[in-house]
């Protein structure tokens, strides 16, 4: 579908919020929580924070929650009954105010969950999500979207992308069919003069490494243990990077509730030693350097080859969230610049 351009004012957006609310939709948007800004359910535009470069966590929870029920079961008196989820009951969700890198991350998640076969629960959630992005007027030293194939005004993954062209005045790019439906719910969209361009309102994010050099360099470096040990000495082996990442989707499956309980899917991270530990005690990745290597290899080598998509959108969240400043940008740069 061809992108349509319109103008929309803050007042109209507010009306859209109350319209969605009246339809019973869940609205997720960046919101101040304590000292941090993160995605949470909101009801009005007032609650939404758009000043930050990035939220702590991504919006992936809308389609890949921290913990979700796959199905429930009753195991009693030698009989087992399985109750599948009612996918119709999944919430209709509008995600508002996420950055173009986060919008693009939904394409990565789709590639992970649906590359070989469709993941029904993920797909059902995805179906019910509409994405209204807001392009970036500012970036920080952790941003590298332009090195990861995106940009501060990138439209990949958005249904509508907004760019603030004057205080309270937005250029709305209507990108998808879902976007058109959403826009149809707004009265008072104004036509956009041809002279209006978003470029002047976007952050400048200079490319910092040559992406095409990363995958071949990684393949070369795989067996260079010293390189990986050096890269990961600081790493504490936690899962903060994976859990804030909009494109990380590794998961665990756990049963809870005894005989009458649920089978759950929950987040997991390749940074944990337990992730690959065999019951026998053998671990194919026994040390942290190998786990860090896996993180980079997976996103920048395996995924491009197997799922035809980069496992990273350059949002920089992992670097900001890391307790010990494992800055992925630096690591990628040194990978790209490693001598053959």
């Amino acid at each position: 579908m061809e992108t349509e351009k319109k103008l929309i004012g803050r007042g109209e957006l507010e009306k859209l919020f109350s319209h969605w609310r009246s339809k019973g939709k869940r609205i997720l948007a960046p919101k101040k929580i304590g000292a941090k800004i993160d995605f949470a359910a909101v009801t009005t535009l007032e609650e939404v924070c758009l000043d930050q470069v990035q939220t702590v966590q991504s919006a992936k929870t809308a389609v890949f929650p921290r913990v979700e029920e796959l199905f429930s079961f009753k195991n009693k008196d030698g009989r087992v009954e399985i109750r599948e989820r009612d996918q119709g009951a999944l919430p209709e969700t509008v995600i508002f105010g996420l950055r173009p890198c986060d919008d693009a991350a939904f394409a990565v998640l789709k590639a992970i969950f649906n590359w070989d076969s469709q993941d029904p629960l993920f797909s059902a959630r995805m179906e019910k999500v509409a994405v209204i992005g807001v392009s970036c007027p500012r970036a920080d030293e952790y941003c590298f979207c332009t090195s990861a194939g995106g940009g501060p005004g990138g439209t990949t993954g958005s249904d509508i992308l907004l760019t603030e062209i004057a205080p309270g005045e937005y250029l709305a790019e209507i990108i998808s069919e879902k976007g058109r439906v959403l826009a149809g719910e707004a009265a008072g969209l104004k036509p956009c003069p041809a002279s209006v361009s978003k470029e002047a309102h976007l952050a400048k994010v200079e490319p910092v490494f040559a992406l095409e050099r990363v995958a071949p360099a990684l393949a070369r470096l795989f067996d260079d243990n010293a390189f990986w040990v050096e890269q990961s000495l600081r790493c504490l082996g936690c899962g903060a990077c994976a859990y804030v990442c909009p494109a990380c989707a590794c998961f665990d499956i756990q049963d809870e509730g005894g005989g009458s309980g649920q089978r759950l899917r929950c987040w997991d991270s390749c940074g944990f030693g337990l992730f690959t530990l065999h019951t026998s005690g053998h671990n194919p990745r026994p040390v942290q350097s190998q786990r860090w290597r896996q993180r980079l290899m997976h996103k920048f080598s395996y995924m491009p080859e197997r799922q035809q998509v980069l496992g990273c959108v350059g949002c920089g969240r992992c670097s900001r969230a890391c307790p010990v400043d494992m800055n992925i940008l630096e690591h990628l740069r040194s990978v790209a610049e490693a001598k053959p």
């Binding site: 992970i112 989707a249 998961f251 665990d252 499956i253 992730f275 690959t276």
Partner: peptide, 8 residues
Amino acid sequence: CGVGKCGR
């Protein structure tokens, strides 16, 4: 998962 998604 057994189906190429869980990542481990």
